[in-house]
Design a protein around this nucleic acid. Sequence first.
DNA 1: GCCGTTTTCGGCCCGACTGTTTTCAGTCG
Length: 587
Amino acid sequence: MAHPLTNAQIADSLEELGDLYELDGADRHRVLAYRRAARAIRESSASVAALVGEGRARELPGIGQTLEAKIGDLLAYGEIPAAVALKQRYPAGVIALTRLPGIGPKRARALFTDLGIDSPAALRAAAAAGRLRTERGFGPKFEANVLAATAQELTGGPSRVLLPRALELGEELVAGLLDSGPPAANAQIAGSARRMVEAVGDLDLVATADDPAALADAFAALPQIEVVLQSGPAAVRARTHMGLDVDLRLARPAEHGNLLQHFTGSAQHNEALRADARARGYHVSEHGVSEEASGRLHTFAEEQGVYSLLGYRPIPPELRENRGELQAAREHGPGLPELVRERDVRGDLHCHTVASDGRAQIEEMALAAAARGYEYLAITDHSASHGFGKAVSPAQLRDQIERIHRLNSSGLGIRLLAGSEVNILPDGSLDYDDDLLGELDWVIASIHTSFRLSEQRMTERLVSAMRHPAVDAIAHPTGRLIEQRPSYALDRETLFEVAAQTGTFLEINANPLRRDLSEQDARAAAQAGVLLVVNSDAHSTEMLALLRYGIATARRGWLRAADVANTRSWEELQRMGKRGRRMPPAS
DNA sequence: GCCGTTTTCGGCCCGACTGTTTTCAGTCG
Protein backbone atom coordinates (compact mmCIF):
# COMPACT_ATOMS: atom_id res chain seq x y z
CA MET A 1 0.00 0.00 0.00
CA ALA A 2 1.07 3.54 -0.66
CA HIS A 3 1.09 4.77 2.94
CA PRO A 4 2.15 2.22 5.58
CA LEU A 5 0.97 4.16 8.61
CA THR A 6 1.44 3.27 12.26
CA ASN A 7 -1.53 2.55 14.49
CA ALA A 8 -0.95 5.89 16.23
CA GLN A 9 -1.06 7.76 12.92
CA ILE A 10 -4.27 6.05 11.84
CA ALA A 11 -5.84 6.73 15.24
CA ASP A 12 -4.81 10.39 15.06
CA SER A 13 -6.48 10.73 11.66
CA LEU A 14 -9.74 9.21 12.87
CA GLU A 15 -9.72 11.37 15.98
CA GLU A 16 -9.17 14.45 13.87
CA LEU A 17 -12.05 13.46 11.60
CA GLY A 18 -14.26 12.92 14.65
CA ASP A 19 -13.31 16.40 15.88
CA LEU A 20 -14.17 17.86 12.49
CA TYR A 21 -17.55 16.13 12.39
CA GLU A 22 -18.24 17.38 15.90
CA LEU A 23 -17.43 20.95 14.90
CA ASP A 24 -19.74 20.49 11.95
CA GLY A 25 -22.58 19.61 14.31
CA ALA A 26 -22.74 15.87 13.69
CA ASP A 27 -24.72 13.54 15.96
CA ARG A 28 -22.62 13.01 19.08
CA HIS A 29 -22.87 9.24 18.86
CA ARG A 30 -21.31 9.35 15.45
CA VAL A 31 -18.45 11.41 16.87
CA LEU A 32 -18.06 8.96 19.75
CA ALA A 33 -17.88 6.12 17.25
CA TYR A 34 -14.79 7.73 15.70
CA ARG A 35 -13.17 8.19 19.11
CA ARG A 36 -13.91 4.64 20.15
CA ALA A 37 -12.46 3.32 16.91
CA ALA A 38 -9.36 5.49 17.36
CA ARG A 39 -8.84 4.07 20.84
CA ALA A 40 -9.19 0.47 19.65
CA ILE A 41 -6.62 1.15 16.92
CA ARG A 42 -4.21 2.86 19.29
CA GLU A 43 -4.43 -0.10 21.68
CA SER A 44 -4.10 -2.80 19.06
CA SER A 45 -0.86 -4.75 19.33
CA ALA A 46 -1.24 -5.89 15.73
CA SER A 47 -0.59 -3.49 12.86
CA VAL A 48 -3.95 -2.11 11.78
CA ALA A 49 -2.55 -1.31 8.33
CA ALA A 50 -1.73 -5.01 7.97
CA LEU A 51 -5.19 -6.00 9.25
CA VAL A 52 -6.81 -3.76 6.66
CA GLY A 53 -4.63 -5.35 3.98
CA GLU A 54 -5.88 -8.77 5.04
CA GLY A 55 -9.49 -7.61 5.15
CA ARG A 56 -9.61 -8.21 8.91
CA ALA A 57 -10.02 -4.65 10.24
CA ARG A 58 -13.58 -5.31 11.34
CA GLU A 59 -12.30 -7.75 13.95
CA LEU A 60 -11.41 -4.67 16.00
CA PRO A 61 -14.23 -3.46 18.26
CA GLY A 62 -15.89 -0.33 16.90
CA ILE A 63 -14.69 -0.75 13.31
CA GLY A 64 -17.49 -1.39 10.83
CA GLN A 65 -17.92 -1.18 7.10
CA THR A 66 -17.66 2.60 6.86
CA LEU A 67 -14.59 3.01 9.03
CA GLU A 68 -12.84 0.11 7.34
CA ALA A 69 -13.33 1.88 4.00
CA LYS A 70 -12.14 5.21 5.40
CA ILE A 71 -8.98 3.64 6.83
CA GLY A 72 -8.50 1.97 3.46
CA ASP A 73 -8.64 5.39 1.80
CA LEU A 74 -6.19 6.77 4.33
CA LEU A 75 -3.72 3.98 3.60
CA ALA A 76 -4.15 4.18 -0.16
CA TYR A 77 -4.14 7.95 -0.66
CA GLY A 78 -2.69 9.33 2.56
CA GLU A 79 -5.92 11.21 3.31
CA ILE A 80 -9.57 10.61 4.01
CA PRO A 81 -11.66 12.56 1.47
CA ALA A 82 -14.26 13.57 4.07
CA ALA A 83 -11.52 15.05 6.25
CA VAL A 84 -10.03 16.99 3.36
CA ALA A 85 -13.40 18.60 2.64
CA LEU A 86 -14.04 19.49 6.28
CA LYS A 87 -10.55 20.90 6.77
CA GLN A 88 -11.28 23.41 4.02
CA ARG A 89 -14.23 24.66 6.02
CA TYR A 90 -12.62 24.64 9.48
CA PRO A 91 -9.01 25.79 9.90
CA ALA A 92 -6.83 23.74 12.23
CA GLY A 93 -6.88 26.59 14.74
CA VAL A 94 -10.61 26.07 15.31
CA ILE A 95 -9.99 22.55 16.60
CA ALA A 96 -7.25 24.04 18.77
CA LEU A 97 -9.90 26.29 20.36
CA THR A 98 -11.72 23.22 21.67
CA ARG A 99 -8.57 22.23 23.58
CA LEU A 100 -8.98 25.28 25.80
CA PRO A 101 -10.87 24.76 29.05
CA GLY A 102 -14.50 25.78 28.86
CA ILE A 103 -14.60 25.68 25.06
CA GLY A 104 -16.19 22.78 23.28
CA PRO A 105 -17.31 22.24 19.72
CA LYS A 106 -20.44 24.39 19.97
CA ARG A 107 -18.67 27.45 21.26
CA ALA A 108 -15.70 27.02 18.93
CA ARG A 109 -18.02 26.85 15.96
CA ALA A 110 -19.99 29.91 17.08
CA LEU A 111 -16.79 31.89 17.64
CA PHE A 112 -15.50 30.95 14.20
CA THR A 113 -18.64 31.41 12.13
CA ASP A 114 -19.94 34.56 13.84
CA LEU A 115 -16.74 36.33 14.89
CA GLY A 116 -14.18 34.84 12.50
CA ILE A 117 -11.98 33.59 15.35
CA ASP A 118 -9.77 30.86 13.93
CA SER A 119 -7.02 30.30 16.52
CA PRO A 120 -6.32 30.58 20.27
CA ALA A 121 -4.27 33.72 19.54
CA ALA A 122 -7.22 35.34 17.72
CA LEU A 123 -9.47 34.35 20.60
CA ARG A 124 -7.14 35.95 23.11
CA ALA A 125 -7.03 39.17 21.13
CA ALA A 126 -10.83 39.28 20.87
CA ALA A 127 -11.18 38.65 24.61
CA ALA A 128 -8.70 41.42 25.41
CA ALA A 129 -10.70 43.79 23.20
CA GLY A 130 -13.98 42.84 24.88
CA ARG A 131 -15.45 41.62 21.62
CA LEU A 132 -16.55 38.18 22.84
CA ARG A 133 -19.42 39.49 24.96
CA THR A 134 -21.17 40.67 21.82
CA GLU A 135 -21.91 37.04 20.99
CA ARG A 136 -25.06 35.49 22.48
CA GLY A 137 -24.17 33.11 25.30
CA PHE A 138 -20.81 34.74 26.03
CA GLY A 139 -20.15 37.30 28.73
CA PRO A 140 -17.38 39.18 30.57
CA LYS A 141 -16.65 36.19 32.80
CA PHE A 142 -15.96 34.09 29.73
CA GLU A 143 -13.54 36.71 28.41
CA ALA A 144 -11.66 36.68 31.70
CA ASN A 145 -11.45 32.89 31.61
CA VAL A 146 -10.14 32.98 28.05
CA LEU A 147 -7.36 35.38 29.04
CA ALA A 148 -6.38 33.17 31.95
CA ALA A 149 -6.54 29.97 29.92
CA THR A 150 -4.60 31.28 26.93
CA ALA A 151 -1.93 32.77 29.19
CA GLN A 152 -1.40 29.34 30.72
CA GLU A 153 -1.47 27.68 27.33
CA LEU A 154 1.23 30.00 26.03
CA THR A 155 3.50 29.07 28.94
CA GLY A 156 3.34 25.41 28.06
CA GLY A 157 0.20 24.37 29.87
CA PRO A 158 -0.30 21.51 32.24
CA SER A 159 0.94 18.10 31.23
CA ARG A 160 0.39 14.66 32.65
CA VAL A 161 2.53 13.42 35.49
CA LEU A 162 3.85 9.91 35.96
CA LEU A 163 1.96 7.69 38.35
CA PRO A 164 4.44 7.79 41.30
CA ARG A 165 4.19 11.57 41.68
CA ALA A 166 0.40 11.43 41.46
CA LEU A 167 0.20 8.66 44.07
CA GLU A 168 2.56 10.51 46.36
CA LEU A 169 0.50 13.70 46.16
CA GLY A 170 -2.72 11.73 46.53
CA GLU A 171 -1.45 9.99 49.65
CA GLU A 172 -0.48 13.34 51.17
CA LEU A 173 -3.90 14.80 50.45
CA VAL A 174 -5.71 11.75 51.80
CA ALA A 175 -3.66 11.94 55.00
CA GLY A 176 -4.46 15.66 55.22
CA LEU A 177 -8.18 15.01 54.86
CA LEU A 178 -8.17 12.25 57.45
CA ASP A 179 -6.25 14.50 59.88
CA SER A 180 -8.34 17.59 59.24
CA GLY A 181 -10.56 19.09 61.94
CA PRO A 182 -13.97 17.93 60.73
CA PRO A 183 -13.66 14.19 60.51
CA ALA A 184 -13.54 12.51 57.14
CA ALA A 185 -14.92 9.07 57.77
CA ASN A 186 -13.03 7.81 54.78
CA ALA A 187 -10.85 9.27 52.05
CA GLN A 188 -9.05 7.54 49.24
CA ILE A 189 -7.52 7.85 45.83
CA ALA A 190 -9.86 7.02 42.98
CA GLY A 191 -9.72 7.68 39.25
CA SER A 192 -6.91 6.69 36.95
CA ALA A 193 -4.35 6.67 39.77
CA ARG A 194 -6.33 3.96 41.54
CA ARG A 195 -6.37 2.03 38.28
CA MET A 196 -2.56 2.39 38.23
CA VAL A 197 -2.33 3.92 34.76
CA GLU A 198 1.02 5.13 33.44
CA ALA A 199 0.46 8.88 33.72
CA VAL A 200 -2.41 10.95 35.01
CA GLY A 201 -3.85 14.25 33.83
CA ASP A 202 -5.51 14.98 37.14
CA LEU A 203 -5.97 13.36 40.49
CA ASP A 204 -9.32 12.09 41.75
CA LEU A 205 -10.17 11.66 45.42
CA VAL A 206 -13.33 10.50 47.12
CA ALA A 207 -14.21 11.14 50.73
CA THR A 208 -17.13 10.53 52.98
CA ALA A 209 -18.20 12.77 55.81
CA ASP A 210 -21.35 13.55 57.67
CA ASP A 211 -20.68 17.23 57.08
CA PRO A 212 -19.44 17.44 53.47
CA ALA A 213 -19.34 21.23 53.39
CA ALA A 214 -16.95 21.36 56.36
CA LEU A 215 -14.73 18.75 54.74
CA ALA A 216 -14.66 20.74 51.50
CA ASP A 217 -13.46 23.76 53.48
CA ALA A 218 -10.77 21.69 55.16
CA PHE A 219 -9.65 20.41 51.77
CA ALA A 220 -9.29 23.94 50.41
CA ALA A 221 -7.07 24.77 53.39
CA LEU A 222 -4.58 21.93 52.86
CA PRO A 223 -1.04 23.20 52.23
CA GLN A 224 -0.77 21.41 48.86
CA ILE A 225 -3.71 23.38 47.44
CA GLU A 226 -2.88 26.50 45.47
CA VAL A 227 -6.36 27.63 44.43
CA VAL A 228 -9.89 26.25 44.40
CA LEU A 229 -11.24 26.25 40.85
CA GLN A 230 -14.80 25.05 41.43
CA SER A 231 -16.71 24.28 44.57
CA GLY A 232 -20.15 22.83 45.19
CA PRO A 233 -21.83 20.71 47.83
CA ALA A 234 -20.74 17.45 46.21
CA ALA A 235 -17.46 18.27 44.52
CA VAL A 236 -14.41 20.50 44.80
CA ARG A 237 -11.89 21.04 42.05
CA ALA A 238 -8.59 22.62 42.94
CA ARG A 239 -5.11 23.20 41.55
CA THR A 240 -2.14 22.06 43.60
CA HIS A 241 1.21 23.81 43.83
CA MET A 242 2.57 20.88 41.85
CA GLY A 243 0.40 22.07 38.95
CA LEU A 244 -1.79 18.98 39.00
CA ASP A 245 -5.54 19.51 39.32
CA VAL A 246 -7.39 17.53 41.98
CA ASP A 247 -11.06 16.60 42.01
CA LEU A 248 -12.52 15.73 45.37
CA ARG A 249 -15.99 14.18 45.45
CA LEU A 250 -17.95 13.97 48.64
CA ALA A 251 -20.68 11.62 49.77
CA ARG A 252 -22.33 10.35 52.91
CA PRO A 253 -20.96 7.06 54.23
CA ALA A 254 -23.95 5.02 53.03
CA GLU A 255 -23.15 5.96 49.41
CA HIS A 256 -19.39 5.64 49.57
CA GLY A 257 -19.36 2.47 47.48
CA ASN A 258 -21.40 4.04 44.70
CA LEU A 259 -19.20 7.12 44.67
CA LEU A 260 -15.94 5.15 44.66
CA GLN A 261 -17.16 2.90 41.86
CA HIS A 262 -18.26 5.85 39.77
CA PHE A 263 -15.17 7.93 40.36
CA THR A 264 -12.68 5.13 39.83
CA GLY A 265 -13.88 4.81 36.23
CA SER A 266 -12.69 4.48 33.64
CA ALA A 267 -15.23 6.55 31.75
CA GLN A 268 -15.36 3.78 29.14
CA HIS A 269 -15.89 1.13 31.82
CA ASN A 270 -18.70 3.10 33.42
CA GLU A 271 -20.30 3.85 30.10
CA ALA A 272 -20.41 0.17 29.19
CA LEU A 273 -21.53 -0.81 32.70
CA ARG A 274 -24.39 1.67 32.56
CA ALA A 275 -25.47 0.68 29.08
CA ASP A 276 -25.59 -2.94 30.20
CA ALA A 277 -27.44 -2.06 33.41
CA ARG A 278 -29.92 0.07 31.52
CA ALA A 279 -30.80 -2.83 29.23
CA ARG A 280 -31.79 -4.72 32.36
CA GLY A 281 -33.83 -1.95 33.93
CA TYR A 282 -31.27 -0.23 36.18
CA HIS A 283 -29.95 3.32 36.17
CA VAL A 284 -26.47 3.69 37.63
CA SER A 285 -25.01 6.92 38.96
CA GLU A 286 -22.68 7.97 41.76
CA HIS A 287 -25.70 8.33 44.03
CA GLY A 288 -26.96 4.80 43.69
CA VAL A 289 -28.44 2.19 41.42
CA SER A 290 -32.14 2.74 40.81
CA GLU A 291 -34.62 0.21 39.52
CA GLU A 292 -36.57 1.56 36.62
CA ALA A 293 -39.74 -0.37 37.41
CA SER A 294 -40.04 0.35 41.13
CA GLY A 295 -37.92 3.46 41.46
CA ARG A 296 -36.13 1.81 44.36
CA LEU A 297 -32.64 3.22 44.96
CA HIS A 298 -29.83 0.91 46.10
CA THR A 299 -26.89 2.54 47.85
CA PHE A 300 -23.79 0.78 49.12
CA ALA A 301 -21.08 1.61 51.61
CA GLU A 302 -18.80 -0.87 49.84
CA GLU A 303 -17.96 -0.70 46.16
CA GLN A 304 -18.57 -4.38 45.51
CA GLY A 305 -22.25 -3.89 46.32
CA VAL A 306 -22.71 -2.08 43.01
CA TYR A 307 -21.12 -4.89 41.01
CA SER A 308 -22.92 -7.63 42.90
CA LEU A 309 -26.35 -6.06 42.40
CA LEU A 310 -25.69 -5.82 38.66
CA GLY A 311 -24.54 -9.42 38.45
CA TYR A 312 -20.75 -9.04 38.30
CA ARG A 313 -18.01 -10.73 40.23
CA PRO A 314 -15.34 -8.38 41.67
CA ILE A 315 -13.37 -6.47 39.04
CA PRO A 316 -9.93 -5.20 40.14
CA PRO A 317 -9.55 -1.46 39.42
CA GLU A 318 -6.62 -2.14 37.07
CA LEU A 319 -8.95 -3.97 34.67
CA ARG A 320 -11.65 -1.30 34.44
CA GLU A 321 -10.94 -0.09 30.93
CA ASN A 322 -13.77 -1.72 28.97
CA ARG A 323 -11.39 -4.22 27.45
CA GLY A 324 -13.62 -7.23 28.03
CA GLU A 325 -13.64 -7.22 31.84
CA LEU A 326 -17.40 -6.68 32.14
CA GLN A 327 -18.28 -9.65 29.93
CA ALA A 328 -15.73 -11.86 31.70
CA ALA A 329 -16.94 -10.86 35.15
CA ARG A 330 -20.62 -11.59 34.50
CA GLU A 331 -21.89 -14.30 36.81
CA HIS A 332 -22.17 -16.75 33.93
CA GLY A 333 -19.22 -15.34 31.98
CA PRO A 334 -15.82 -16.98 31.61
CA GLY A 335 -14.46 -15.26 34.72
CA LEU A 336 -11.53 -12.90 35.17
CA PRO A 337 -7.97 -14.19 35.53
CA GLU A 338 -6.46 -14.35 39.03
CA LEU A 339 -4.05 -11.43 38.54
CA VAL A 340 -0.39 -11.61 39.50
CA ARG A 341 0.45 -9.84 42.79
CA GLU A 342 3.66 -8.19 43.90
CA ARG A 343 4.10 -10.78 46.63
CA ASP A 344 4.09 -13.58 44.02
CA VAL A 345 7.47 -12.37 42.72
CA ARG A 346 10.41 -14.47 43.95
CA GLY A 347 13.31 -12.69 42.32
CA ASP A 348 14.39 -9.62 40.36
CA LEU A 349 16.34 -10.24 37.16
CA HIS A 350 17.52 -6.77 36.19
CA CYS A 351 19.50 -4.35 38.34
CA HIS A 352 22.67 -2.27 38.26
CA THR A 353 25.54 -1.57 40.64
CA VAL A 354 28.43 0.88 40.82
CA ALA A 355 30.19 -1.32 38.26
CA SER A 356 28.12 0.50 35.62
CA ASP A 357 25.66 3.31 36.33
CA GLY A 358 24.13 2.10 39.61
CA ARG A 359 24.64 3.70 43.01
CA ALA A 360 25.05 0.66 45.29
CA GLN A 361 27.52 -2.19 45.72
CA ILE A 362 26.55 -5.75 44.87
CA GLU A 363 26.34 -6.61 48.58
CA GLU A 364 23.99 -3.70 49.28
CA MET A 365 21.70 -4.66 46.42
CA ALA A 366 21.73 -8.27 47.62
CA LEU A 367 20.77 -7.35 51.19
CA ALA A 368 18.00 -5.02 50.00
CA ALA A 369 16.63 -7.73 47.71
CA ALA A 370 16.77 -10.29 50.51
CA ALA A 371 14.89 -7.85 52.74
CA ARG A 372 12.14 -7.80 50.13
CA GLY A 373 11.86 -11.54 50.51
CA TYR A 374 13.41 -12.46 47.17
CA GLU A 375 15.06 -15.83 46.62
CA TYR A 376 17.34 -14.57 43.85
CA LEU A 377 18.70 -11.38 42.30
CA ALA A 378 20.47 -11.04 38.97
CA ILE A 379 23.22 -8.43 38.80
CA THR A 380 23.00 -7.09 35.26
CA ASP A 381 25.36 -4.19 34.74
CA HIS A 382 25.64 -2.63 31.31
CA SER A 383 27.98 -4.24 28.81
CA ALA A 384 31.11 -2.96 27.12
CA SER A 385 29.68 -0.57 24.53
CA HIS A 386 27.00 1.11 26.57
CA GLY A 387 28.33 4.54 25.75
CA PHE A 388 27.25 6.45 28.82
CA GLY A 389 28.18 5.91 32.41
CA LYS A 390 30.79 3.29 33.08
CA ALA A 391 30.99 0.33 30.75
CA VAL A 392 32.01 -3.06 32.04
CA SER A 393 34.95 -4.49 30.11
CA PRO A 394 35.19 -8.25 29.54
CA ALA A 395 37.96 -8.46 32.15
CA GLN A 396 35.87 -6.52 34.69
CA LEU A 397 32.89 -8.75 34.02
CA ARG A 398 35.01 -11.87 34.65
CA ASP A 399 36.10 -10.35 37.97
CA GLN A 400 32.47 -9.61 38.82
CA ILE A 401 31.44 -13.20 38.04
CA GLU A 402 34.15 -14.43 40.42
CA ARG A 403 33.03 -12.00 43.08
CA ILE A 404 29.41 -13.12 42.80
CA HIS A 405 30.43 -16.76 43.08
CA ARG A 406 32.37 -15.95 46.25
CA LEU A 407 29.42 -14.01 47.69
CA ASN A 408 27.09 -16.90 47.00
CA SER A 409 29.27 -19.22 49.05
CA SER A 410 29.43 -16.70 51.90
CA GLY A 411 25.81 -17.08 53.00
CA LEU A 412 24.09 -13.84 51.99
CA GLY A 413 20.58 -15.16 52.41
CA ILE A 414 19.85 -14.72 48.72
CA ARG A 415 21.12 -16.34 45.57
CA LEU A 416 22.97 -13.89 43.32
CA LEU A 417 23.03 -14.53 39.61
CA ALA A 418 25.99 -13.35 37.57
CA GLY A 419 24.38 -11.52 34.70
CA SER A 420 24.68 -8.71 32.23
CA GLU A 421 22.45 -6.30 30.38
CA VAL A 422 24.04 -6.76 26.99
CA ASN A 423 23.67 -4.24 24.20
CA ILE A 424 22.13 -5.41 20.97
CA LEU A 425 24.16 -3.68 18.27
CA PRO A 426 22.40 -2.37 15.15
CA ASP A 427 23.26 -5.51 13.19
CA GLY A 428 21.70 -7.72 15.87
CA SER A 429 25.00 -8.95 17.33
CA LEU A 430 25.95 -8.63 21.00
CA ASP A 431 28.89 -6.77 22.45
CA TYR A 432 30.44 -9.57 24.51
CA ASP A 433 31.81 -12.68 22.88
CA ASP A 434 30.00 -16.00 23.17
CA ASP A 435 32.55 -17.53 25.54
CA LEU A 436 32.08 -14.77 28.07
CA LEU A 437 28.29 -14.82 27.70
CA GLY A 438 28.45 -18.59 28.30
CA GLU A 439 29.93 -17.98 31.76
CA LEU A 440 26.91 -15.97 32.88
CA ASP A 441 23.88 -17.29 34.75
CA TRP A 442 21.52 -14.79 33.16
CA VAL A 443 21.74 -12.60 30.07
CA ILE A 444 19.24 -9.86 29.38
CA ALA A 445 19.70 -8.07 26.08
CA SER A 446 18.44 -4.63 25.12
CA ILE A 447 18.68 -1.74 22.71
CA HIS A 448 20.27 1.53 23.81
CA THR A 449 21.44 3.01 20.50
CA SER A 450 20.25 3.49 16.90
CA PHE A 451 16.56 3.87 17.70
CA ARG A 452 15.67 5.11 14.24
CA LEU A 453 16.16 1.96 12.21
CA SER A 454 13.34 0.93 9.90
CA GLU A 455 10.71 -1.39 11.27
CA GLN A 456 12.16 -4.27 9.28
CA ARG A 457 15.75 -3.71 10.42
CA MET A 458 14.74 -3.15 14.04
CA THR A 459 12.64 -6.31 14.04
CA GLU A 460 15.52 -8.31 12.50
CA ARG A 461 17.86 -6.83 15.11
CA LEU A 462 15.70 -8.13 17.95
CA VAL A 463 15.02 -11.45 16.23
CA SER A 464 18.78 -12.04 15.91
CA ALA A 465 19.23 -11.39 19.60
CA MET A 466 16.38 -13.73 20.53
CA ARG A 467 17.85 -16.48 18.36
CA HIS A 468 21.21 -16.16 20.15
CA PRO A 469 21.52 -19.17 22.43
CA ALA A 470 22.90 -17.12 25.35
CA VAL A 471 20.14 -14.52 25.47
CA ASP A 472 17.60 -15.36 28.17
CA ALA A 473 15.43 -12.26 27.95
CA ILE A 474 14.89 -8.97 26.14
CA ALA A 475 14.78 -5.93 28.41
CA HIS A 476 12.41 -2.99 27.77
CA PRO A 477 11.59 -4.47 24.37
CA THR A 478 10.04 -1.42 22.69
CA GLY A 479 12.26 1.39 24.02
CA ARG A 480 9.45 3.78 24.76
CA LEU A 481 9.64 6.41 27.49
CA ILE A 482 6.22 7.41 28.79
CA GLU A 483 5.22 10.96 27.80
CA GLN A 484 8.67 11.44 26.27
CA ARG A 485 9.49 9.05 23.47
CA PRO A 486 7.40 6.56 21.50
CA SER A 487 8.46 3.01 20.85
CA TYR A 488 10.90 2.45 18.02
CA ALA A 489 9.39 0.97 14.86
CA LEU A 490 8.86 -2.72 15.44
CA ASP A 491 6.76 -5.63 14.19
CA ARG A 492 5.29 -6.83 17.46
CA GLU A 493 3.66 -9.94 16.05
CA THR A 494 7.04 -11.18 14.86
CA LEU A 495 8.66 -10.22 18.15
CA PHE A 496 6.12 -12.26 20.13
CA GLU A 497 6.18 -15.18 17.72
CA VAL A 498 9.98 -15.52 17.84
CA ALA A 499 10.08 -15.00 21.62
CA ALA A 500 7.63 -17.87 22.05
CA GLN A 501 9.47 -20.09 19.54
CA THR A 502 12.91 -19.56 21.06
CA GLY A 503 11.86 -19.54 24.71
CA THR A 504 13.14 -15.99 25.17
CA PHE A 505 11.47 -14.14 28.04
CA LEU A 506 10.22 -10.62 27.38
CA GLU A 507 10.55 -8.10 30.17
CA ILE A 508 8.00 -5.81 31.68
CA ASN A 509 10.45 -3.19 32.85
CA ALA A 510 8.95 -1.70 36.01
CA ASN A 511 10.63 1.69 35.90
CA PRO A 512 7.63 4.06 35.95
CA LEU A 513 9.08 6.00 33.02
CA ARG A 514 9.26 2.82 30.92
CA ARG A 515 6.65 0.22 31.90
CA ASP A 516 7.86 -1.60 28.82
CA LEU A 517 6.29 -3.87 27.56
CA SER A 518 3.12 -1.84 27.86
CA GLU A 519 -0.02 -3.44 29.25
CA GLN A 520 -1.46 -4.01 25.78
CA ASP A 521 1.77 -5.49 24.45
CA ALA A 522 2.17 -7.68 27.53
CA ARG A 523 -1.33 -9.03 27.11
CA ALA A 524 -0.79 -9.75 23.42
CA ALA A 525 2.58 -11.37 24.17
CA ALA A 526 1.09 -13.68 26.79
CA GLN A 527 -1.70 -14.62 24.39
CA ALA A 528 0.98 -15.46 21.83
CA GLY A 529 2.55 -17.90 24.30
CA VAL A 530 5.40 -15.67 25.52
CA LEU A 531 6.55 -15.87 29.13
CA LEU A 532 7.23 -12.51 30.74
CA VAL A 533 9.57 -11.38 33.50
CA VAL A 534 8.81 -8.30 35.62
CA ASN A 535 11.98 -6.51 36.71
CA SER A 536 12.80 -3.30 38.57
CA ASP A 537 15.88 -2.23 36.54
CA ALA A 538 16.94 -0.76 39.89
CA HIS A 539 19.94 1.55 39.95
CA SER A 540 19.84 1.83 43.75
CA THR A 541 18.52 -0.21 46.67
CA GLU A 542 15.40 1.98 46.95
CA MET A 543 14.54 1.44 43.33
CA LEU A 544 13.92 -2.27 43.88
CA ALA A 545 10.52 -1.12 45.20
CA LEU A 546 9.61 0.24 41.78
CA LEU A 547 8.64 -3.33 40.94
CA ARG A 548 5.09 -2.42 41.95
CA TYR A 549 4.69 -0.39 38.76
CA GLY A 550 5.72 -3.34 36.63
CA ILE A 551 3.25 -5.51 38.49
CA ALA A 552 0.61 -2.85 37.86
CA THR A 553 1.33 -3.06 34.14
CA ALA A 554 1.19 -6.87 34.27
CA ARG A 555 -2.16 -6.70 36.04
CA ARG A 556 -3.50 -4.15 33.59
CA GLY A 557 -2.38 -6.61 30.91
CA TRP A 558 -4.52 -9.36 32.49
CA LEU A 559 -1.46 -11.44 33.47
CA ARG A 560 -1.63 -14.23 36.02
CA ALA A 561 1.31 -15.42 38.13
CA ALA A 562 1.65 -18.28 35.66
CA ASP A 563 2.39 -15.78 32.87
CA VAL A 564 5.27 -14.21 34.82
CA ALA A 565 8.34 -16.46 35.03
CA ASN A 566 9.96 -14.78 38.04
CA THR A 567 7.08 -15.86 40.23
CA ARG A 568 8.84 -19.27 40.04
CA SER A 569 11.96 -20.57 41.73
CA TRP A 570 15.21 -19.98 39.87
CA GLU A 571 15.48 -23.67 38.95
CA GLU A 572 11.94 -23.76 37.60
CA LEU A 573 12.40 -20.50 35.71
CA GLN A 574 15.48 -21.88 33.94
CA ARG A 575 13.56 -24.93 32.79
CA MET A 576 10.81 -22.69 31.38
CA GLY A 577 13.17 -20.65 29.20
CA LYS A 578 15.87 -21.20 26.62
CA ARG A 579 18.27 -22.82 29.10
CA GLY A 580 15.70 -25.53 29.72
CA ARG A 581 15.67 -26.35 26.01
CA ARG A 582 19.40 -26.85 25.77
CA MET A 583 19.58 -28.96 28.90
CA PRO A 584 18.71 -32.63 28.75
CA PRO A 585 15.24 -33.16 30.16
CA ALA A 586 15.24 -34.10 33.84
CA SER A 587 14.63 -37.81 34.20
C1' DG B 1 -21.04 5.13 12.86
C1' DC B 2 -21.63 0.81 15.45
C1' DC B 3 -24.24 -2.93 16.97
C1' DG B 4 -27.52 -6.99 18.55
C1' DT B 5 -30.26 -11.11 25.79
C1' DT B 6 -33.17 -3.97 22.25
C1' DT B 7 -30.86 -8.07 16.71
C1' DT B 8 -30.94 -4.83 10.54
C1' DC B 9 -33.46 -0.07 13.19
C1' DG B 10 -33.37 2.57 17.08
C1' DG B 11 -31.00 3.11 20.46
C1' DC B 12 -26.26 4.75 22.26
C1' DC B 13 -24.36 6.74 30.70
C1' DC B 14 -25.17 10.28 33.86
C1' DG B 15 -24.76 14.14 36.91
C1' DA B 16 -22.13 18.51 38.66
C1' DC B 17 -20.90 23.00 37.85
C1' DT B 18 -20.62 27.50 35.41
C1' DG B 19 -22.25 31.41 33.29
C1' DT B 20 -25.48 32.64 31.04
C1' DT B 21 -30.11 32.54 30.94
C1' DT B 22 -34.99 34.41 32.49
C1' DT B 23 -35.45 28.19 32.58
C1' DC B 24 -30.98 26.24 30.43
C1' DA B 25 -27.04 25.02 27.18
C1' DG B 26 -22.47 23.86 27.18
C1' DT B 27 -18.62 21.67 29.07
C1' DC B 28 -16.43 18.39 31.80
C1' DG B 29 -15.25 14.13 33.97
